[in-house]
Design a protein around this nucleic acid. Structure first.
Length: 375
RNA sequence: GGAGAAGUAGCGAAGUGGCUAAACGCGGCUGACUGUAACUCAGCUCUCUACGAGUUCGGUGGUUCGAAUCCGCCCUUCUCCA
């Protein structure tokens, strides 16, 4: 008996947005949800208590990275990733498929799998669908991903087609290799910017009957309009009653556009990464706290934000911490950016339940001063 | 009082006749970041009427076609000895 369940609790009347609940062994999650990324079994700079405090429902970790360090066997011996990092909430692991893209200079793809050169020490590593699933079984997250190839944009049609076919074979192999019924396994729709490939990929995955479906291959350099098309091309062939996860997306307007199209889950390094680099998401748009203008600004980052950082610290102090390269700055800014997005998702869920998602979207778009990046 | 050593852009520090408006680091200023090789990366940082021009290497006077680089004098700092 699987411990994973997804129930839709409310459907938006004038868009494809919906609210739901994902049930896992480690707790329930309300959707649509934004998942903070904790690649190495840590959301960089945040303690598990802080992750909980910002209202995170589920976090993500990475197979490739944990495989390299400390090793999936060690995570398994620790009692699984949740116990290992002392985080007792729901977790998801990515398969390493994104590293096929992001470490493209260090890998070689074959039908069997992908040979990587470790980014740490140059070791030759081999990741296959079976290996990725087996590692994820060991790591023990509640939701795991198929091993896919995330292709770049733009992609040559023939290449995208060949890649999609292979990703489909990999998905099937991964499904057969999956050994832990307590872990939900998601298939990943690829196909680049091509409608027919996305359709084909989605339909074939649905035939395999995964627990949920991810939309991959987005936010790899394409423009917004293309990304939204990729979502449309994929999502319309996915079943209503399974969760849809748009991978690697976290710019504010992308979250709205995704939800409007029926996406239930998002993850993104953006809020935490830019926080560490001094960029903050606020009601006024993105600000860079390192700028000289904040040196004597003794007001909070965002007066409307209820996060620990905004309730207790000033821009001048954050500016100071960044100038001194003090880790507390990275931490406080990460807390804020994550809370900002999670707040936004709470607002989105509430609006959907009240049948006013599109109104809410319009309100937020009016209030937040979006730039062309969508913040 | 005597003997040495040194003074280079905001700071530290290379450079000892032309390829030097002057390496590099820090600091400063901007920008980027979307399933994390990311507390990272990129650009700018003498002045201006700025795809060009003008003034620089403690000061000043020389040598030379040409000087941050060689010579004289002056100023300042440091170390050691009295």
């Amino acid at each position: 008996m699987k411990k994973f369940k997804f129930n839709i609790t409310h459907k938006c009347k004038d868009s494809k947005a919906r609210c739901g609940i994902i049930e896992t062994l480690h707790g329930n999650v309300e959707t649509p949800i934004f998942m903070p990324v904790g690649t190495l079994a840590t959301v960089k700079f945040l303690s598990p208590e802080e992750i909980k405090e910002i209202g995170s429902g589920i976090i993500l970790s990475n197979t490739y990275h944990l495989w390299l360090r400390p090793g999936a066997d060690i995570v398994e011996k620790a009692g699984g990733v949740q116990k290992f990092m002392n985080y007792n909430g729901p977790m998801l692991t990515d398969s390493g498929g994104f590293q096929v893209f992001s470490l493209s200079k260090h890998r070689k793809i074959s039908e069997e799998g992908v040979t990587f050169r470790s980014h740490l020490n140059g070791d030759k590593l081999f990741l296959s669908p079976e290996k990725s699933i087996s590692l994820q079984n060991q790591i023990g997250a509640d939701i795991i991903m198929s091993f896919d190839e995330c292709i770049p944009y733009p992609a040559d049609y023939q290449y995208a087609k060949t890649s999609v076919e292979r990703t489909l074979r990999w998905a099937s192999r991964g499904l057969n290799a999956h050994r832990n019924p307590n872990q939900a396994l998601f298939g990943i729709v690829q196909g680049g910017e091509y409608e027919d490939l996305r359709e084909h990929c989605a339909k074939e995955l649905v035939k395999m009957n995964f627990d949920g479906y991810s939309i991959g291959g987005t936010s790899v350099g394409e423009d917004k309009a293309t990304m939204y098309k990729m979502i449309d091309f994929s999502i319309k062939h996915l079943p209503e009653d399974k969760p849809r996860y748009l991978m690697g997306v976290g710019a504010v307007n992308d979250l709205f556009e995704g939800v409007e199209r029926g996406v239930d889950m998002f993850d993104c390094v953006l809020p935490t990464r830019i926080a560490r680099h001094g960029t903050l998401m606020t009601g006024e748009g993105r600000i860079n706290i390192k700028k000289a203008t904040y040196k004597e600004d003794f007001t909070p980052l965002d007066t409307k934000c209820d996060c620990y950082t905004c309730k207790n610290f000033t821009k001048a102090y954050l500016n100071h911490l960044f100038r001194c390269n003090e880790g507390l700055g990275d931490r406080l800014c990460s807390i804020h950016n994550l809370r900002f997005l999670l707040n936004l998702m709470e607002g989105i869920r509430k609006a959907i339940k009240e049948d006013r998602f599109l109104e809410y979207k319009e309100e937020v778009y009016k209030t937040l001063k979006f730039d062309e990046r969508g913040f």
